[in-house]
């Protein structure tokens, strides 16, 4: 019994330590974001990595999500003779929920794991110490570009996912469910409000903050060797996904109240 309590206590302390570290890194990142810097090239290369390099995977996933959503909702609402509304339902579901969540989770996996592994390996090979000896702040050099890239590019990916997802829904609606193309597009436009798009983009920006800060934090916390790099990578993906899902719940409540 004593062992269980001790173990729980240790886990709770570790959780609080990580939470404190994550908040400290977040505020430190905000501070260094507004300091003058000659590292703009880094921001651009991270934006390419987060945005351009994710296009294929986000495109394929969005297409499938759009197609599945159209199938599932189409079959369900057909019973009520409301099949023609499928465009509107797909559009709202994708813009508000599916696209930001999918982009968040895919980026947490693809981008978050890469951030944690890259920074962790720099830590192990003393490259982060080398940065300090060259009078460079590691947060400014490593975290700020990744933070800004996620903050800007994840909403851009959501816009892309919206378009591809709607296209997937259109394919299923017009080819398989017999909905007229013009009606589908008309309902997409009439159902989708600015608030839906705004909600999706806001979520994506926050998921970008979560992914970049969690992953960079764990990378910077790597101790020892390659074993801890693999632990850091797992932590970055699992906890980013978990935090994104928790944030998604609160966003859903918040945006429905608004």
């Amino acid at each position: 019994m004593k062992e269980i309590v001790e173990n729980l206590g240790r886990q709770a302390l570790a959780f609080l330590r990580h939470l404190g570290g994550i908040f400290l890194l977040f505020f430190s990142t905000i501070y260094w974001t507004f300091q003058p810097s000659r590292l703009k090239k880094n921001i651009f290369s991270q934006m390419v990595f987060v945005g351009m390099d994710s296009l294929l995977i986000i495109g394929v996933t969005s297409l499938l999500i759009g197609m599945v959503t159209a199938w599932q909702t189409g079959i369900a609402i057909e019973q009520f003779g409301a099949k023609t509304y499928i465009g509107g339902i797909v559009a709202v579901a994708i813009a508000r929920e599916m696209a930001p969540l999918m982009v968040g989770l895919m980026c947490a996996g693809r981008v978050g794991s890469s951030f944690a592994a890259e920074i962790g390996s720099m830590k192990v090979t003393e490259q982060i110490d080398a940065l300090k000896t060259l009078a460079v702040e590691p947060v400014q050099y490593l975290v700020v570009p990744r933070f800004l890239a996620c903050l800007v590019m994840m909403p851009v990916l959501v816009i892309f996912a919206n378009v591809i997802g709607l296209f997937g829904g259109w394919l299923v609606a017009t080819r398989n469910l017999g909905v007229d193309s013009a009606i589908y597009i008309n309902h997409v436009l009439s159902f989708t409000k600015f608030k839906d798009l705004y909600a999706g983009l806001t979520k994506a920006a926050v998921y970008g903050i979560i992914t970049s800060i969690f992953s960079c934090y764990r990378g910077l916390e790597v101790r020892g060797g390659s074993e801890d790099i693999s632990r850091a990578t797992t932590f970055a993906v699992v906890f980013s996904c978990l935090a994104i899902l928790v944030a998604d719940y609160f966003f859903s409540v918040l945006f429905n109240l608004m």
């Binding site: 090979t125 003393e126 110490d129």
Partner: peptide
């Protein structure tokens, strides 16, 4: 402070055991 330490570090050059080159 870290800011003052940064200025002092301009006095130094350091060669790490594994090189610590930015790969």
């Amino acid at each position: 402070s870290e800011a003052k330490l940064k200025k002092i570090r301009f006095l130094f050059g350091m060669v790490f055991q594994g090189g610590a080159l930015f790969d």
